[in-house]
Structures are given as C-alpha cells and as structure tokens.
C-alpha cells in the first residue's frame, strides 16, 4: 500500500463538493430568474447549462481517477465521485421538467 499524501484527502470531498456548488448555483439562478420574471425557457436553459457543466466536471474527475485506485482512500474517492454523479442527476434532473415559477 502506497503512502497517502494529505492533499489526496481533497479527493474525498471533490464529488459532493461539486454537488453542493450545483445546488447553490441552481438555487440562486432559479430564485433570481423567478424574481425578475425571466422567461421560463431562459431559466430552464440556464439550469440545464449549470447541470451540464457539473455533470461534465464529475465525468472528467471520474475519468481521471478511474485507474488511480492504488489505496483505499482513492478507491473511496472514486466511489464518492460516482455517487455524486448519480445524486446530481437524480436530485436536479427533474428540475428541467417542472414548472419553474408560479
């Protein structure tokens, strides 16, 4: 087992860190868009772009980490990235189908 560098710990929070930035951006964009009465299509497009960027970032990290599972920490990191990808799709995906504002 190879030694773990302290900086590798950051990989543990990378996945759900990205999930959180998606939450903040989606929440802010949705609230501001509805308050300023932007057209629903524009709000949906903005939300879709935010989500797409986060899915792409998660996929890129997963791709980068795919073969770097030399120790337990990096294995766990890879699985948290996969879990974060699934969580991002599951929790934010329906946003694109629902009525954005009333």
């Amino acid at each position: 087992m190879s030694p773990t560098r302290p900086a590798s710990l950051l990989w543990l929070v990378a996945g759900f860190g990205l999930w959180s930035t998606a939450l903040i951006l989606v929440y802010a964009l949705h609230a501001v868009g509805c308050a300023f009465v932007w057209p629903p299509a524009a709000i949906r497009l903005g939300l879709a772009l935010v989500l797409l960027a986060h899915v792409a970032a998660l996929l890129a990290l997963i791709h980068h980490q795919r073969r770097r599972t030399v120790n337990l920490l990096l294995q766990v990191a890879l699985w948290t990235l996969v879990a974060a990808l699934v969580a991002t799709a599951f929790t934010y995906g329906p946003l694109l189908l629902l009525t954005p504002c009333v």
């Binding site: 599951f90 329906p94 629902l98 009525t99 009333v102």
Partner: peptide
Amino acid sequence: LPPLVAWALVAGERLLPLP
C-alpha cells in the same frame, strides 16, 4: 425512493397555484 419522488413531483405540480 424513485417512485415516491415521482409521485411527490406530480402531486406538487398539480398543487401549484398557477393563475
């Protein structure tokens, strides 16, 4: 969980106070 989420989303959509 996914069926519950789907049901909640549909129910919530039907309860929206649309003008």
